[in-house]
């Protein structure tokens, strides 16, 4: 289920523009890895390169390797669609499909993966996923209502339910709490801690307390300078990053002296 991700010498380009340069990182299975850094330093770009979602933008490409349990994501015969079925993603703004019910939202991924599923099986899976996302008790009486009628925090948990319903190996989260209030944020953080028993989680966050609270390891991204590509400056256990980082730049960022 949960898998280890090894990234070596990864350069990410948009057309001729080098956005992120020379990332080497090993992400442990069944743990939460946080990526922090100032805006525009390429952490979201890097996150999206882990399930090839950055390719949605025309001209985006990578050089280097991303290997998940021995399989190169960017191998010549690898279909990005298959990659995304194995690696789920949760976005900054909650994005349940507005024309689908809560039930259909959760079932959407499964209906893509396996066309023929028995109703009972699907019911079971929807319930399990919603329970997994701590949303079941709140929505079990209105599964046929549109997902867009929920609160922001509930919608985000619905998106998490939708992502985990297809049993991915890795869950990528791109600032999942930045549009939420503190109580909803807490609910999502608790959920992440539960989910890491089953999934490898990588989260991009601007909230350093959040990174400190939930993650085992933290990577700090920064720009080498104006107009320069983003780099992974430091990658270490979260405790070390927040108490005794190796790099001066990391310490400056964390203590609020810049960025």
């Amino acid at each position: 289920m949960a898998k280890r991700i090894d990234v070596s010498d990864l350069d990410i380009y948009y057309g001729n523009f080098l956005a992120v340069q020379g990332v080497n990182i090993s992400i442990e299975p069944r743990s939460i890895t946080a990526l922090i850094g100032p805006s525009g330093c390429g952490k979201s770009t890097f996150l999206r390169s882990l399930n090839r979602m950055h390719e949605v933008i025309p001209g985006a490409r990578v050089e280097g390797k991303v290997v998940i349990d021995g399989q190169d994501l960017y191998g010549a015969d690898v279909d990005p669609v298959d990659v995304r079925r194995q690696i789920g993603m949760v976005f900054q703004r909650p994005n349940p499909f507005p024309t689908m019910s809560i039930y259909d939202n959760v079932a959407a991924g499964l209906r893509l993966n396996a066309k023929k599923v028995k109703k009972a099986e699907l019911d079971d899976l929807v319930e399990r996923s919603l329970k997994g996302a701590n949303l079941w008790t709140e929505v079990k009486d209105r599964l046929n209502r549109p997902g867009s009628g929920l609160s922001g925090g509930q919608q985000q948990r619905l998106c998490i339910a939708r992502a985990i319903a297809v049993e991915p190996e890795v869950l990528l989260m791109d600032e999942p709490c930045s549009a939420l209030d503190p109580i909803s944020t807490l609910a999502i953080e608790d959920l992440m801690t539960e989910l890491k028993e089953r999934f490898t989680i990588v989260i991009v966050t601007h909230n350093m307390q959040q990174a400190a609270r939930v993650s085992e390891s933290t990577g700090f991204f920064n720009l080498a300078g104006v107009g320069q590509p983003g780099r992974l400056v430091e990658f270490n256990p979260t405790e070390k990053i927040f108490s005794n980082p190796d790099e001066k730049a990391t310490e400056d960022y964390i203590s609020g002296r810049f960025g």
Partner: peptide, 13 residues
């Protein structure tokens, strides 16, 4: 909305 298009793509559509 790109939001929903990306949601579908990220599910492996």
């Amino acid at each position: 909305p790109a939001l929903h298009r990306e949601a579908a793509l990220a599910l492996g559509a």
